[in-house]
C-alpha cells in the first residue's frame, strides 16, 4: 500500500525519511562491501531487484472485483535477507514512483519504512521463528508473506494516523479509521500474497532447486514436496 505523492505533511515526510535512512545506509554498505568482495554479485543483485519490481506488478484477483498487486516484500526478505531488501526495496520504490507514479518522492521515506524495512523484518522474523519452532517450509513461507504484508499495511495506517490524528480520539482513533478503510483490500490481499508465495516456492523448488539452495531457502533438492508429503 503506497502512500501517494504529497499525501504526508512536510515534517512527517522528512521524519520518515530520517527514520528510514539508517536502515538504507546499512543495506547500501552491505551491498557495496559484497560487490567489492565479489563483483559478480552486482548482476545477481540487479536480477533480485528486477524480480521484486516485476513480482509487485503481477495482477492478483481481488475480492473487491478489480485486481490488486502483491508487495513481494515478504518473499524478497526470505530470499535476500532484510538488510539487502532495505536497499533493493528503496530502489524498487523509487522506480515505482518514477515509472508508475505509485508512491512518490516526498513519501519515499515513509513507504521505504513500511514496505522495505518493517514488512521485510517482520516477514523474516516470522519465517525464522516458524522454522525454529519446527514448522515446515510451506507454513513458514505463507506466514512470512502474509504477515509481512499485514505489517506493511499496519505501519502505513499508523503513518497516516500520525499525520492526520482524529479530532476526538487522537492517533488511536485515526489508526482505527485508516486501518478499517484499507482493511477491505489489504487483509484479503495479505492472504492472497501468502497463498501466491507458497505456490511460487513450490514451483521453484521443482524447476530451480539449485537457486533456492544457493539463496539458503532450502537445504537440499526438492524438500517442499517431501515436507508436504510428510
Amino acid at each position: 500500500m503506497h502512500i501517494a505523492e504529497g499525501y504526508l505533511p512536510p515534517l512527517h515526510a522528512v521524519a520518515w525519511g530520517a527514520a528510514s535512512a539508517p536502515f538504507v545506509v546499512w543495506g547500501a554498505r552491505a551491498v557495496v562491501k559484497q560487490i567489492r568482495d565479489n563483483p559478480e554479485s552486482k548482476l545477481l543483485l540487479g536480477a533480485a531487484g528486477a524480480f521484486c519490481f516485476v513480482l509487485s506488478a503481477l495482477k492478483l484477483p481481488s475480492v473487491t472485483g478489480s485486481c490488486s498487486h502483491p508487495t513481494g516484500t515478504g518473499f524478497g526478505a526470505v530470499l535476500f535477507r532484510p538488510p539487502v531488501m532495505a536497499l533493493l526495496g528503496t530502489i524498487v520504490l523509487f522506480f515505482q514512483a518514477t515509472l508508475l507514479a505509485h508512491g512518490g518522492l516526498t513519501t519515499l521515506g515513509a513507504n521505504v519504512f513500511s514496505m522495505a524495512i518493517a514488512g521485510p523484518w517482520v516477514a523474516y522474523g516470522v519465517f525464522v521463528l516458524t522454522r525454529q519452532l519446527g514448522g515446515g517450509l510451506i507454513p513458514a513461507v505463507f506466514l512470512a508473506a502474509a504477515l509481512g504484508d499485514l505489517a506493511t499495511y499496519c505501519v502505513t495506517s499508523v503513518q497516516l494516523a500520525l499525520a492526520f490524528p482524529d479530532p476526538v480520539s487522537g492517533v488511536v482513533g485515526a489508526v482505527a479509521k485508516f486501518g478499517s478503510i484499507f482493511a477491505i483490500t489489504q487483509i484479503p490481499l495479505a492472504i492472497s500474497e501468502g497463498l501466491l508465495t507458497v505456490l511460487i516456492v513450490r514451483l521453484l523448488s521443482r524447476v530451480s532447486p539449485a537457486e533456492l539452495t544457493r539463496l539458503g531457502l532450502i537445504k537440499s533438492a526438492n524438500p517442499v514436496v517431501k515436507e508436504s508429503v510428510a
Partner: peptide
C-alpha cells in the same frame, strides 16, 4: 492463482538466468 504463480516462477528463473 496457479497461473500467476507460474508467472512469478518464470520471472525468477529468467531473472537469475539472465544475470
Amino acid at each position: 492463482y496457479r497461473a500467476v504463480a507460474g508467472q512469478g516462477g518464470a520471472i525468477f528463473v529468467r531473472a537469475f538466468d539472465r544475470a
